[in-house]
Computed example of a mutant assay.
Amino acid sequence: MKKTRSKVMSTVAGAAILGMTIAIPNYGAVGNVAKAEEPVQQELTDEEKGQALEQHVEAQAQPPNVNIDIDPVAIFDSISETIKTADNRGGFVKAARETVSFHTDYSLNVMVLNLSNDYDESSYSGVHYFDTFTYDGAIYGVWAFEEGTFVNNGDGGYDNWAFYGWFDRDGGTVEFRLP
Rank of each mutant, 00 (worst) to 15 (best):
G156K: 10
G165Q: 04
A16Q: 03
N117E: 06
I139D: 10
Q41G: 08
F133W: 15
F150G: 03
T82R: 12
V127Y: 14
D120N: 06
T99D: 01
I79R: 01
A15G: 12
F92S: 02
F163N: 04
Y27H: 13
D46V: 07
T45W: 00
I75W: 01
E54D: 12
D69C: 09
E98D: 14
T11L: 14
F76C: 05
H56C: 11
N117R: 02
L115I: 06
I83H: 05
V151H: 10
V142Q: 01
T99N: 07
F102P: 02
V151G: 01
L44H: 04
A23C: 11
D118C: 08
Y129I: 01
M1C: 11
I68Y: 05
E38G: 09
F167D: 08
E175W: 13
D170G: 08
V40P: 06
G141Y: 04
W161H: 01
Y124F: 11
L18F: 11
F167I: 13
T82P: 03
W166G: 03
Y124G: 07
N26P: 09
F176Y: 02
T45S: 04
A16D: 00
A86G: 01
I83R: 05
V174I: 11
F102S: 08
N160H: 09
D136E: 15
V110T: 05
K84N: 02
T132Y: 14
T134N: 06
A34P: 02
L53P: 00
T132Q: 14
G171D: 14
A29R: 15
A29I: 11
A29P: 04
G141W: 03
S123L: 13
T21S: 06
K3H: 13
V66K: 03
S123N: 15
F102I: 06
D168I: 15
Q55K: 08
F92W: 07
G141S: 09
S107E: 11
V40G: 09
A61T: 11
T132C: 04
I75N: 00
N32Q: 14
K84R: 15
V151M: 10
K84H: 06
F92G: 03
R177K: 15
S107G: 13
Y164M: 07
V127T: 13
L178G: 04
F163K: 04
S101M: 10
G165R: 05
Q42I: 05
E37C: 12
R5D: 09
Y119L: 07
T45P: 03
D136T: 10
T11G: 13
E81T: 07
Q41H: 12
Q42C: 11
G157N: 05
R177E: 14
G148V: 00
A34F: 13
V151C: 09
A138V: 12
A36I: 12
S116Y: 13
D118Q: 04
K84P: 01
I139V: 10
G165W: 10
K84C: 04
S80T: 10
G137Y: 07
